[in-house]
């Protein structure tokens, strides 16, 4: 009798638990916490990261960077849930966490690619707020 009643309970539990596990990532949480602390230091009015601002940053055509890469979308393509392609023709896994779950969880990798790509696209370092907004947007996709 216990067996029969336990099954539906387990089924309900797994539905509740699985999405929470898929969204949480200790590495990413730590990166966002560090960026949040930096953002507070950089601007007194900082009130948290914003996916909408990250979306704008991702799509905007910037003018300060290198001519071949005016936007993130130059290589990553217009949709975060689809693959992009480097200028040398190599496929780039989608930026959206829903499609590439391991994204934004390795601090060295995150630092390396923001350093390179902010310089290529914007011609400067990104602020902590911009990086946090970007990751927050990609986590929501």
């Amino acid at each position: 009798m216990i067996r029969f009643t336990a099954l539906p309970v387990l089924a309900v539990l797994s539905v509740l638990v699985v999405p929470a596990v898929a969204g949480a990532n200790p590495g990413r949480d730590a990166i966002l916490a560090e960026l949040s602390a930096q953002a507070k230091d950089q601007a007194s009015g900082f009130a948290g990261f914003d996916a909408g601002r990250g979306d704008v940053l991702f799509r905007h055509r910037h003018t300060g960077g290198k001519p071949a890469t005016p936007a993130c979308t130059s290589c990553h393509g217009p949709s975060p849930i689809q693959a992009g392609e480097t200028r040398a023709g190599k496929v780039i896994d989608p930026l959206a966490v829903s499609r590439t779950p391991e994204r934004y969880s390795d601090p060295e990798k995150v630092a390396k690619w923001f350093r390179r790509n902010c310089n290529s696209v914007l011609g400067r370092e990104c602020t902590a707020r911009e990086k946090g907004d970007f990751i927050t947007f990609m986590t929501s996709q």
Binding site: K66, P67, A68, T69, R87, K112, R115, R116, N119, S120
Partner: peptide, 12 residues
């Protein structure tokens, strides 16, 4: 490497 064929490919 910081200007590698038009992109920043700098390394540590």
């Amino acid at each position: 490497l910081p200007d590698h064929f038009g992109e920043d490919a700098s390394l540590d």
